[in-house]
Amino acid sequence: MTAPKPPAPEIKGYCPGALRPMMSGDGLVVRIRPYNGRLNRMQTQGIAALSERYGNGVIDLSSRANVQLRGVTPDTHAPLIDALRDLSLIDPSETVESRRNILVMPFGETPVEAAALTQALGQPDAPALPHKFGFAIDIGPEPVLQSAPADIRLERDATGGLILVADGMHTGKPVKAQDSIQEALALAQWFMDTRGTHNRMAKLLGDGTPPPAGFTTVRQTQTYGPAPGPTSQGMLAGIAFGHVTAGAFSTLGDIRLTPWRMILIEGVHTPPPLDGLITDPADPLLRITACTGAPACTQGLAPTRPLARALAPHLKPGQTLHISGCAKGCAHPKPAAVTLTATNCGFDLVRNGRAGDTPRQTALTSTDIIKAL
C-alpha cells in the first residue's frame, strides 16, 4: 500500500519579527534583528533573561544573523516587547521592522553604511519591499557574505572600489561611499517597479529581466569559508543548529552575529567552556543544517536534531547535510548536496536539491540513511 502523501506545508510568506511574531508548535517565535549585527553585553544578558521570563529559555540564531526567542505566549508578548524596547532592540513600527533586513560583515569596524541604510529604510518614503527582501553590507577587502541571503549587496571590487550588486549577477555598479545608500535604495525601487510577481532579486533577473544600466564591473569571487577560530576581533565559534540555551547565551558578552549560525565573541581569544559551543573546525555538526522540526514546529513531521546528532559521526570528510522537518526547507532554502526531508513514514533523501524536490530514495530509517550517506 502506498503511504499517504503528507499535506503541503503552509507557506506564510513572511519571516517572523518581534512586532509580528509567528506561531509555532512551542509558542510564538519572536525574531530580534540586532542593529548593525551587534549585541553588547547588556543586550545579550537582557535577551537571555527575557527568554527565561517570557519564553521557554530557548534561543535560536537564524541564517539572517538574527536572534529568535521561542515559547512566547500572546499574554507575554506585549511585556516582552516593552522590555526589548528598553534594550534598544525594537523598531518604531512593524513596517520599519519588515524592511530592515540587513546583513553586516562581522569582521573589522562596523561600517557607517549599515547605520545609514538602517536610517534610510526607516523613512516613510522607503520602498515597501517584500518581507524577505534583504541587503548585505559586505565591504571588507574581500567578500564574506556571498553565500548568505541578500538581494542588494555592497561589496569591493578587485581594485578596492565600492560596487553595488544586484543578487544573481556577476557584475556590479561602481558607487561612491557617500552615494552608496541612495544608489542601493534606487536599485530597490527599480526592483519594486519591475518585479511583477517576484519577491527576490535573483528570481527577477533569472527570468531574463535586464538590470539597470551601469552594472558592468566584475565582482570578486568569495574564497572565505567560515570556520571557528580566533580573529582580530575575538573568537568565532559555532552553535550547533543555531540552538542555544538562555543560560549559555547570557555569558557571551559583546557579540557579533553571522548568517552561518556562528557568533563572534568580541575580545575573547580562548573559547569559553560552554555546552553546545563548537570551536573545532573539523566538528561534523558544522556541516549539518537542521531546522527545529517536530514537535516545536507545527509543520514538522518528525524530530530533526536528534537524527542530526546521530548522523554526524557518519558524514564523510567534507560532506554536508540538510535535515528538514517538512518540504519547505526553511533552514536551508538553497540546494544541498544531501537533503533529508521528513514524511509521515520516514525520511526522503534528495541529492543536489531542495527539501521539496523529487527524492532519490523514500521512507528511510536512520539505519537506511547511514548506509545511503
Rank of each mutant, 00 (worst) to 15 (best):
T2H: 13
K5D: 13
P6A: 04
P7I: 06
E10K: 15
C15R: 10
M23G: 14
Y35A: 12
G37S: 03
Q43N: 07
Q43V: 03
L50M: 11
L50H: 14
E52D: 11
S62R: 04
A65F: 10
V67D: 01
V67I: 06
Q68I: 02
V72Q: 11
P74F: 09
P74Q: 02
T76H: 10
L84V: 00
S88A: 08
L89F: 13
E97D: 15
R99S: 13
I102C: 05
G108Q: 11
P111E: 04
A115E: 07
A116H: 00
L117Q: 08
G122E: 07
P130S: 00
P130A: 11
F133H: 08
G134H: 12
I137W: 14
G140A: 11
G140L: 00
P143C: 09
L145Y: 11
Q146Y: 05
S147W: 00
D151C: 10
A158H: 10
T159A: 09
G160I: 10
L164H: 14
L164E: 10
D167H: 15
G168R: 15
M169C: 08
P174N: 12
P174D: 14
A177T: 14
S180Y: 08
Q182C: 10
E183F: 03
Q189D: 01
W190R: 12
M192D: 01
G196P: 00
G196E: 00
H198T: 11
L205F: 12
G206T: 15
G208T: 01
T209G: 12
P211V: 13
P212G: 13
A213P: 07
Q220G: 03
Q220P: 04
Y224M: 03
P230G: 09
T231P: 11
S232L: 04
G234A: 00
L236N: 09
A240G: 01
F241P: 05
L252W: 03
P259M: 11
W260P: 06
L264S: 11
E266Q: 03
G276D: 08
A282G: 05
D283Y: 04
C291R: 06
P295R: 07
C297Q: 10
L301T: 15
A302I: 15
P306E: 13
P306D: 05
L307H: 05
P313V: 04
P317V: 04
G318N: 04
S324C: 05
C326V: 15
A327V: 02
P333N: 03
L340S: 04
T341P: 01
T341I: 09
V350K: 01
R351L: 13
G356Y: 15
T358I: 03
T365P: 07
T365F: 04
S366F: 06
I369G: 00
K371W: 07
A372K: 07
A372M: 13
L373K: 01
